[in-house]
Design a protein around this nucleic acid. Structure first.
Lengths: 112, 112
DNA sequence: ATGCCACCATAGATATTCTATGGGAGCGAG
DNA sequence: CTCGCTCCCATAGAATATCTATGGTGGCAT
């Protein structure tokens, strides 16, 4: 009924965005999604079906660790925080993103 | 033996890059790959296993049309050119790319 | 007590890209 | 002339990420 944006994320960028969300403070999943939406001025809408599998994936890889706690609204929530490996990974992915997006911009004829 | 870059493309950007390659002149597949590599200063390496399926996909969708011709080195080659729909698609994808990359940059804390 | 919202989770579908492989044909070197 | 190299096309199968859809728990306000 309403106009659907149908804007899928660029595949490969979600991990980086999540890691970046955790850079300064630990957050639980739901909060990460809200944070990304807000910071991107409503442009990035991370679906829960993408978010939670991504979090589990990254925990398996040792980039983040988790602990159960209470959310701001006093609900049970699983908080995630960056591990040292996660910080390294974030740095790596950030660098790759810069290079890749600049390369694409060059092809598209945008300013450097 | 040599240092492998192993830099996958951002999923979703290949179509746009190909369409952009065809914006000013028709090209054959092999030439598109070379062109992208050159314009991106060797950063974008499009594999043939990605390129040809993408071309066929886009032809099926009516974004490009093809014809057989002779390459610069006098070999048989299939040339592709943008259709009107392809031009529209390119415009759409370009706009989406700008918004998406700006949104990501905002999250990452880069300049607007 | 009821309903809403915050919060987690997973299965299955979908789509894209990569790896690996194969083949044909022009051209230059020997 | 034939050998090898590069150009050029093509497809199958694997790997991976994201989305759609669905379900469930438990605070809190009405």
């Amino acid at each position: 009924m309403a106009s659907e944006k149908k804007t899928s994320l660029l595949q490969g960028s979600l991990d980086m965005l999540i890691l970046q969300s955790l850079r300064k403070e630990s957050r639980h999943g739901y909060s990460i999604a809200k944070y990304l939406k807000k910071v991107s001025e409503d442009f990035l809408q991370v679906e829960e079906g993408s978010l939670y599998p991504a979090l589990h994936r990254m925990e398996r890889r040792g980039w983040i660790t988790s602990f159960w706690g209470a959310s701001e609204s006093n609900r049970r929530a699983k908080f995630y925080e960056l591990s040292p490996e996660g910080k390294r990974q974030l740095k790596t992915e950030t660098e790759a993103w810069k290079q890749m997006s600049q390369a694409i911009d060059r092809v598209m004829g945008f300013q450097t």
